[in-house]
């Protein structure tokens, strides 16, 4: 738009274009255009253009290689298929495993973050150990856990040390009653350290005076957790709980790299990926993607509403927290003043 403005000006009075470009206003427009062209072009090419294409493709029966004029328009058939085929919509049920996993992961992260935020020996070392899995690439994790869960290999060996018999142990990636849990465990293993670091960051931002005061009042660690840590990181915990739901709907990496969706571990996206890139049912895959995007979108709106609701609550609490801090500071100052007085006396 700004470019056309520049053009029009140029045509009308071409002599003054340089003058305009040198003025403050002209410079503002120029810098805005210059700095936004590339990012917007990229955003358009790799997000909104594909998004539009996806909606369009979802009404066609086509492959990637089908020329544009040979694509068959099928109306809503792809969408009906998404809900009718067992392998498509049914796969969303697997998300429940990942929701449970994500909740366990958050609880574990919160527990460990609390421990590590009190002073413990070697705290940094343990934090590093538990965080490192986050830095490993998905494909490497695939190999590591294929190896880990292989019959008689790492996991079975450790369980045998603990007294289990190999005959009683299931095939971790093949047995349909357990294999989804194995994959979820992998996901927990990979991300709990990252969640933990996040929570530690939030806990550390709590005013240290509060702990000091609580300890002086004789509060034990559980009470400190309950009354100081938890209220102050409530927002970030809730946020993560909600994010874990959308995350679980789009669970993809662990089943993709470890089992490739075999033996009933194919989550929604694994199946969509296979339909698109292996069986080349691009229309159906696009319809699947659109359906899930709509669900995610709905979840996000709900989350926004939910947060508005919580925010209304939190505001008063926030005030009391600030008031508490102010009171503590005042008390400290009074104490100091008293000491100073005694010193003088």
């Amino acid at each position: 738009m700004a470019a056309t403005v520049a053009k029009v000006k140029k045509e009308k009075k071409p002599f003054h274009f340089m003058q305009w470009a040198k003025s403050r206003k002209g410079q503002q427009v120029l810098i805005c255009v210059a700095f936004m062209v590339i990012p917007l072009l990229l955003l358009f090419t790799f997000t909104y253009l594909p998004f539009g294409e996806m909606v369009r493709f979802s009404f066609y029966d086509m492959k990637y290689s089908t020329p544009a004029d040979k694509r068959e328009f099928v109306g809503w058939e792809n969408y009906i298929d998404v809900f009718r085929r067992d392998d498509c919509f049914g796969a969303l049920k697997l998300s429940l495993y990942y929701v449970v996993g994500a909740l366990i992961q958050l609880a574990l992260a919160l527990y460990l973050a609390t421990i590590l935020s009190f002073k413990v020996k070697g705290g940094n070392f343990f934090k590093g150990l538990m965080f490192f899995p986050y830095l490993i690439s998905g494909i490497a994790i695939g190999f590591i856990f294929k190896f880990f869960y292989t019959r008689g290999f790492v996991f079975d060996t450790v369980l045998q040390w603990l007294g289990f018999e190999l005959e009683n142990l299931p095939y971790w990636l093949r047995d349909q009653s357990i294999n989804n849990w194995s994959l979820v465990a992998t996901s927990v293993w990979r991300y709990f350290g990252q969640n933990m670091v996040l929570f530690i960051g939030a806990i550390m931002s709590v005013d240290a005076d509060l702990y000091e005061a609580a300890e002086l009042d004789g509060a034990n660690k559980f009470q400190q957790f309950r009354h100081i840590i938890l209220p102050s990181i409530k927002t970030i915990v809730t946020l993560n709980v909600i994010l874990s739901i959308t995350g679980s709907l789009s669970a993809f990496e662990q089943p993709y790299v470890i089992t490739d969706g075999a033996n009933g571990t194919g989550t929604y996206f694994v199946i969509m990926n296979e339909l698109a890139h292996t069986s080349q049912k691009v229309g159906l895959a696009s319809a699947m993607a659109v359906v899930l995007l709509l669900i995610i979108f709905a979840c996000t709106i709900l989350q926004k509403l939910f947060f508005k609701y919580i925010f209304r609550d939190a505001e008063s609490e926030d005030e009391s927290y600030k008031a508490k801090r102010a009171r503590l500071k005042a008390e400290k100052a009074a104490l100091r003043a008293e000491k100073a007085k005694k010193g003088v006396a």
């Binding site: 955003l43 090419t45 790799f46 997000t47 909104y48 253009l49 594909p50 998004f51 294409e53 996806m54 493709f57 990637y64 789009s250 993809f252 996206f269 969509m272 990926n273 698109a276 890139h277 691009v282 895959a285 696009s286 993607a289 899930l292 995007l293 995610i296 979108f297 996000t300």
Partner: peptide, 17 residues
């Protein structure tokens, strides 16, 4: 809004582009 779209889903059509 772009941050809401899961990358894997987008690749179905980004591949075409």
């Amino acid at each position: 809004f772009a941050s809401l779209l899961p990358a894997v889903a987008m690749q179905v059509t980004v591949y075409n582009i």
